[in-house]
Write a protein that binds this DNA or RNA. Structure first.
Length: 224
DNA sequence: GACCAGGCACATC
DNA sequence: GATGTGCATGGT
């Protein structure tokens, strides 16, 4: 089985096992962007509390968030962890939206995909995964999002080596698939799902994993 | 109580 | 260029 065949087969197997993930069925693209920053190295449950606080305070818009004193912003997003750090990162992003695009995410999202990715990546605190999450889940661009789970799974199945960087991992998956927003959306959600259940750092368990039949015989799932 | 979660920037060698 | 470290809450 070639690498490309594996990547396509994984999707079929995961989709058959888990079904639609409805990932990030966000109320608004702006909320997706805020959530993308808040979820950095943080479980989604904590992010939801922070988002609920922002909604409750009525500040879930670029202008309102930007107008908020940084300490108050930090306090509202506290449940998401790294709250001082993330308040700064959010403000860096808001600075772009408010002061370069008139507070309009729609205007920012008028940029062609490559240009948009550069613009968002240039914000301090937004790395490749956060940027691509915004592009795929908020701006509906066919950009494949990869994460720590993707690397663990791909490495375990001999698709890439352990030191594979973000761009190569992304190219490997995207290159095997049709560039389709709905497909990329679903595939990333499925990888996180199987990762959570079977490819955590601790206690990886391949038993019952939909991808188990694709494993090369040998070493157990390696913590990465 | 240790370990982990849908990362990223920065310091240091 | 590679490796290490700070950031912080809440769940297992």
């Amino acid at each position: 089985m070639t690498v490309n065949e594996k990547i396509r087969a994984f999707y079929e197997a995961l989709s058959a096992s888990y079904g639609p993930q409805h990932w990030w069925p966000a109320p608004t693209p702006f909320e997706v962007c805020v959530g993308a920053i808040l979820t950095q190295n943080t479980s989604w449950g904590n992010v939801e509390r922070a988002l609920a606080n922002l909604k409750q305070a009525g500040v879930l818009s670029p202008e309102a968030l930007w107008a908020l004193p940084p300490e108050e912003l930090a306090e509202l997003i506290r449940p998401a962890g790294y709250y001082r750090l993330k308040a700064g990162r959010l403000r860096n992003f808001l600075d772009l939206v408010v002061n370069s695009y008139g507070g309009s995410l729609e205007r920012l999202f008028e940029l062609p995909t490559d240009r948009l990715r550069q613009e968002v990546l240039a914000v301090s605190g937004i790395g490749p995964e956060t940027a691509d999450s915004m592009l795929l889940y908020a701006a509906s661009r066919p950009v494949f999002v990869v994460d720590a789970y993707t690397l663990r799974i791909a490495f375990r199945h001999g698709i890439v080596d352990q030191e594979c960087d973000y761009d190569l991992l992304q190219e490997t998956f995207a290159g095997a698939l049709e560039p389709d927003v709905a497909l990329f959306n679903e595939y990333h959600g499925l990888l996180v799902q199987v990762g959570k259940l079977h490819c955590r750092k601790r206690e990886p368990s391949c038993v019952g994993c939909p991808l188990e039949r694709f494993l090369e015989p040998g070493e157990p799932c390696e913590p990465l």
